[in-house]
Design a protein around this nucleic acid. Structure first.
Length: 563
RNA sequence: GACUCGGUAGCUCAGCUGGUAGAGCAUAACACUUUUAAUGUUAGGGUCCUGGGUUCGAGCCCCAGCCGGGUCACCA
């Protein structure tokens, strides 16, 4: 491993500590009495406290030093005075241990008395301190003065790959994740108070249903069948409504094997809730109350800022039917129009459409192009075309529509809800229709019918309303983050290519291979000039490190370089 | 997938028409007992993402690739 100068220095310090009889990674607990926040909140001159955390920004001033100690709740200043720490003649603990062997980032426990400095800062005067854990790698080091941060750790790639470092040095990042947990807790509490059950359903599914998306496939060895990672939990939750629960919900990790961008991560968290004997009108009321509750729990207010937009989650939210929305923004009234009339209107508006699109798809295209982006404040868009919604009940007044709403915020969808389809025959027909579309090559259509789900519906499902909320998206709005990566601890990244260390033989063979690849194995071995044993070891290393690959073509072996 | 911007010290970033690689902080040494981006003096630290090419000479120009950001396309 290639170490930087600073990393080598810290390893030397580690050795010196051990020579001094100090364990840099002691096993025993440290008796913490206060967090940094508690120290400040219950500050009393002269009070004795024990705190623990990382030392940040150590400012040595000869026989006394100031440091910031950072714990889970913030920072507190600690004053290290030589004669306080070393009351006797032996000053090594301050002169050598503190000044020379303790670094920025190290964990220490401090026992001391509270006092206020001449500049008025609440400070702990250390009477004693204990090294709790030595850091070998220097953290990125942002500095702050008067609220301005200098040399901030901002490179997104490094921040996402090394979230641990990001969290240590960027308090605002930590705050996003505190809000994330507050959001989940608030929502969970709201549902529990309403009397609904939190449940768990399978992540590994034999048929990936409930949405149209490409799933991840895996294989179960003893069953010897393919299993799919869930793309939605809808069909399982409805089975539970069939089973007799009045309300069930689940925070579900879903997995979709599709493109990644600033609003899509391969795994993301959705919340889905299903409530019996309700319809989508009830769900709209429930939804706006829920979001108002969550916004307050997370931010203390219903107001939020997202980019240039000020939004307010205070209920009630505007309700607009899709037809009215299109009429409002384009002047075109879709009601009662034929597919051809709508296609022509779309073309006249400059919306890109083609002849394969059905009526529903055309309407959706027009809405997406001309209307969607205009809804900044939370707005329910209702009554979607039937084709787009194979799991949704037909509208009670118009058979071309469904009882569905989406909640739009800043032009983006954050919730999607239905009066759930519970007619098993209709559901079967719609699945079969999807199957037809899929056979014709519609990639959005679902290609497999979940007959077990249909069997469940045949036992009878009460009228039910269901809703899904994209938790990551919602959190983006509540924390003013434009990128989903900022609200996931560990967003998916391409693996880092690690620099492989090779010995001289391996380097030589690899260099040969790079000039000619693929090359016959015998030929490469010849050219390497290595003994049988050495050759064997070398080629096994290269293939083991996935730097080279051996292929058998007919009866000849070829070695190929892997880039 | 397309376009575009970027990758230089532990961190944040400069780097001239192509001519021995820089700063601040951090690190090491010395001084300094209420400072706070502490300060002063001194020193060390680099595979300029990788691989090719052009050139007497490449961090810089050209080609290919890797990784990331952004925009667009795709997206129940």
């Amino acid at each position: 491993m290639q170490l930087s100068e600073q990393e080598l220095v810290r390893r030397e310090k580690l050795n010196k500590l051990r020579e001094m009889g100090i364990n840099p990674y002691p096993a025993n607990l440290y008796p913490v009495t206060h967090t940094s926040k508690q120290v400040k909140a219950t500050f009393e001159e002269g009070k004795t406290v024990n705190v623990a955390g990382r030392l940040m920004s150590i400012r040595v001033q000869g026989k006394a030093s100031f440091a910031q100690l950072q714990d889970s709740e913030g920072k507190i200043q600690v004053y290290f005075n030589r004669d306080e720490i070393c009351p006797g003649d032996d000053k090594t603990k301050y002169n050598d241990l503190f000044k020379k062997l303790i670094d920025f980032g190290d964990f220490v426990g401090v026992e001391g008395e509270l006092f206020t400095t001449q500049v008025g800062e609440k400070t702990i005067k250390a009477k004693d301190f204990t090294l709790l854990s030595k850091t070998l790698k220097p953290l990125p080091l942002p500095k702050e003065k008067d609220g301005v941060t200098y040399d901030a750790f901002t490179d997104p790639e490094q921040r996402y790959r090394q979230r641990y470092a990001d969290l240590v040095v960027n308090p605002h990042v930590k705050n996003v994740f505190i809000k994330r947990t507050k959001l989940f807790n608030a929502m969970r509490q709201f549902f529990n108070d309403a009397g609904y059950f939190e449940v768990e359903t399978p992540v590994l599914q034999p048929i990936p249903g409930g949405a149209a998306a490409r799933p991840f496939v895996t294989h179960h060895n003893s069953l010897d069948i393919p299993l799919y990672m869930r793309i939605a939990n809808e069909l399982y939750l409805k089975r539970l409504i069939v089973g007799g629960f009045d309300g069930v919900y689940e925070f579900s990790k879903n997995f979709r094997n599709e493109g990644m961008d600033r609003t899509h991560n391969p795994e993301f968290t959705a919340m889905e809730i299903y409530v019996a004997y309700k319809d989508y009108n009830w769900m709209m009321l429930f939804c706006e109350q829920l979001l108002e509750h969550c916004a307050i729990a997370v931010n203390g207010t219903t107001k939020a800022t997202f980019g240039n937009h000020d939004i307010d989650f205070k209920a009630p939210y505007a309700r607009v039917t899709m037809a009215d929305s299109i009429k409002h923004f384009t002047g075109f009234d879709i009601s009662g129009k034929s597919e051809e009339e709508i296609r022509k209107a779309a073309k006249d508006m400059g919306v890109a459409v083609d002849d394969t699109m059905g009526k529903g798809k055309l309407i959706d295209e027009i809405f997406g192009e001309k209307c969607e982006g205009n809804y900044i404040q939370p707005t329910f868009i209702t009554d979607y075309p039937k084709e787009m919604s194979p799991l949704c009940k037909e509208h009670r007044e118009n058979p071309e529509l469904t009882e569905r709403f989406e909640l739009m915020v800043c032009g983006k969808e954050i919730a999607n809800a239905y009066s759930e389809l519970n007619d098993p025959i209709d559901q079967r027909e719609r699945f079969e229709h999807q199957l037809e579309l899929a056979k014709k090559g519609d990639e959005e259509a679902t290609g497999t019918i979940d007959y077990d789900f249909l069997r469940a519906l045949e036992y009878g499902m009460p009228p039910t309303s269901g809703m899904g909320i994209g938790m990551d998206r919602l959190l983006m709005f509540l924390t003013n983050n434009q990128s989903i990566q900022e609200v996931l601890f560990f967003p998916q990244m391409k693996p880092e290519k690690k620099q492989v260390e090779m010995n001289e033989d391996e380097k030589a063979v690899f260099a040969l291979l790079k000039t000619t690849s693929p090359i016959e194995l015998v030929d490469l071995k010849e050219r390497s000039g290595l003994s049988n044993k050495k050759w064997d070891k070398t080629i096994k290393f290269l293939t083991g490190q996935k730097l080279a690959k051996v292929n058998k073509i007919d009866n000849d072996l070829f070695v190929e370089v892997i880039l």
